[in-house]
Structure formats: C-alpha cells, structure tokens
Design a binder for these strands. Structure first.
Lengths: 206, 206
DNA sequence: GTCTATATGCTGATAGAC
DNA sequence: GTCTATCAGCATATAGAC
C-alpha cells in the first residue's frame, strides 16, 4: 500500500537534511543526488538552481521557528508562568531540532541577501509588530502593578534568546571539548532549562 | 624609514582578515594572493597548504581569547565586583573584535578536527583545570558565607558566556533586520552590557 | 521524467624557469 | 624568493537523447 514518493519531494527531503547538517556551502547538488539515488541533473531539473532549492527549505524552517515563538504568546495565570512556559516551549522545540539555531545563524550571518529577504518578508509584516506590541503592553502593565522589575521588553526577549539559543549553539563544543556522552548532553539540557528559567525569573523580580 | 614588510608576514595578515570576515571555506588562496598583490603560488610557497596557514592564525586567536578569560580572574573587594568586572572585560574585548565569536564558533562547529585539536592542546592543559578550580573554590566559599545563591559554578560561567557571546553573534541580525545604524549598534552594546551585568548579579543573590 | 554527456569555471597544489 | 604554467578535481548548470 506504500505509495512511492515522487522524486521532487525526495530530493527536497534529502536536501533539507544535508543543508541542515552541513550548511549551504558545504553541500553539493552532486551529494544530494547521490543520497537520493538519482543523477545530479535531476536536482537541477526540478529546482533549477541550488540557491532556489535552498531558499524553499530555509523559509520553511524560518516559518516553523517563528511559529513556535508565536504560539508561546498565550494567556496564563501570571507573568511568571507565562515566561517560564515560553522558555520551556523554546527549549523543547529546540531539543527536537538542536541544529536549527546554528543552521539559521550561519546562513543569516554569512549571507546579507538572506537577511534582507527575511527582513522584507517577515520582520516588516504587521504580525510581528503586533506580537511585539502585545508583549510590550503586557510588560508595562505588570510594571505599573509593581510585579515586574523596570526592564525593557526588548531586553527580556534578548536575554531569553541569548540563554536558550546559545545553549544549543555551543552543544557540539560542550560535547566534544568536555568529552560528554549523549546522555550527559540530555541531562545538561534539562539542567540548563531549569537554571535559565530560574535566572530569568529572578531577574524579573522588582 | 619605513621598512617594507616581508611577503610572508603580509600574506599572513591579509589571510587573517579574510578568514576572519568570510571564514575558512569562503576564502581562497587566490583571493589572499590578489589582495596581497602577489601570485597564488607564493602563498603555498610560504605556508604549503591553506589549512596550515589557517591553523596558525586560528590558534593565535584562540590563545588571545583565552588570555582575556584568564586575566579576568583576579582579586577584587567582593564577588559582585569580580563578576561585573569580568563581564565588563569580556564585553570590551569583544567590542573591539566583534566578529571573533562567530569566527571561532563557525570553525569549531563545522570542523570536528578543530574541536579535537582545541581539546587536546588547550582544554586538557592543567592551566585550565586550575582556572576552573580556583573559580569553583571561590564560589563555594561565597555560598558558605551566605553571600551567593546556590548555583553551580559551571552554570554561572555558561550564563555569562551565553549572554555576552550571543550578543555579538547576533549583531549582524540586530543591525540588518531592525535597520540600525552603526551608532545604534554602539548604544545597543553599551545598553546590553549594563543589563546583562544587572541580570547576572541579581541571579546570584541568595 | 530521467538519463548521459559536456561546458565552464574555480579550487588547492605543484613543477620548473629565472 | 617570486614568477608562469599547468595539473587534477570538483562545483553548478545546461543540452539533448530516450
């Protein structure tokens, strides 16, 4: 009953995995074709250029990542549970996709065109301005009520991003430089999740 | 009176700048030679391989970075001033070298051989075990005296590294995605330095 | 839709003249 | 020490047979 996947899709799936693990520059269309089990010409038949193939995959990942951030903004009983819930969501999402942060960072840092594209097609969309305004309003009302330290909204987001994202960026270094097993890494992630939550919450107290 | 620099050194300086800004993979010996004003063969005459040339430069940068970390461990009047002084030193060192974190991260993440080399030649050296033990002893004595929250030494280092390093890793994104000027970036860095110091210190309070 | 064959260009590295 | 010339290899991309 198993329907054979069409080549177009298989190429895309294999390409995604390779781009993800090796980056754009280090992945060749020849390698993609080889792992798919077709000729290199077929990759170009479907996607014309390597850049084209990459862009489709890259945007899909960006959208998925932004989706997680969007869903983290939801009603809770208090600002503290809201923040700790958001951190927990980011950590869990990245734990099942630990190479995503480096993949996105690498391609955005090394290619200004991709930054421009992301800015014009995502950052400037009203949805993201609304997201930030909602968060900012929430922060200001909490501060007015005296339940929150006098910290800027942007700083809260930057600190949470720094602490969570860097954990995953440095994971290969943690594992190899300190010679840790996969189990060690899992324990480390769970441990950091708790400590980061504690640190951020303590930093938000008036 | 100006002595003409020997070619060997000029090649190295130009290579350093290019590797720094573009990474190892994206920099060719042809480009190095072109910017130096010599032939590509001369680059290989002096350094034999591109990897060889890179390694010398890379290790120099690693040593410089580790040197800053080493110098940050010094006597102060209190643990709080010690921590805020260290953060300040890291921030200032990176401000005059903002691409260093990405350069080091990229090469270590993308090349397991470099991680192995760094581990065997630096991480395993007694000097770094001593550095960590000194810090750990200091933390434990502060905790015994009730002046410090019950946080593991490694977590303190990880959180400081996350907050400072990620700031510089994400600088191109901050600038381009939010369309900030160079002056904006300078103000942003100064602002984050203060906020990160505040957050870490508050997180260390019992 | 999938293949073979090929064009074109760039890379790192070496041999050998001067 | 610096050059010219060249090699082999791999890349992306395309043309054309089937």
């Amino acid at each position: 009953m198993e329907t054979k996947e069409p080549m177009e899709l298989r190429i895309r799936e294999v390409a995604q995995e390779l781009f993800f693990n090796q980056g754009f520059a280090a992945t060749s269309t020849t390698q993609i074709a080889h792992e798919v089990g077709c000729t290199q010409a077929l990759v170009h038949y479907y996607y014309r250029t390597k850049e084209n193939l990459f862009r489709q995959i890259f945007l899909e990942q960006i959208e998925a990542a932004l989706g997680v951030i969007g869903r983290s903004l939801h009603e809770t009983e208090s600002f503290e549970t809201f923040i700790s819930g958001a951190i927990s969501m980011y950590f869990d999402a990245l734990s099942s996709n630990p190479r995503l942060p480096y993949f996105v960072l690498e391609e955005l840092v090394s290619n200004p065109d991709r930054r421009r594209y992301l800015r014009e097609n995502f950052v400037k969309k009203p949805a993201y301005a609304i997201f930030y305004m909602q968060f900012d309003t929430l922060v200001k009302s909490e501060q007015k009520a005296g339940r929150l330290a006098n910290v800027e909204s942007f700083d809260i987001l930057m600190s949470i991003a720094s602490l969570t994202v860097f954990t995953f960026l440095s994971l290969p270094l943690y594992q190899d430089l300190l010679e840790r097993t996969d189990t060690d890494v899992q324990n480390f992630l769970a441990h950091r999740k708790r400590e980061i939550t504690r640190l951020v919450l303590q930093g938000l107290r008036p």
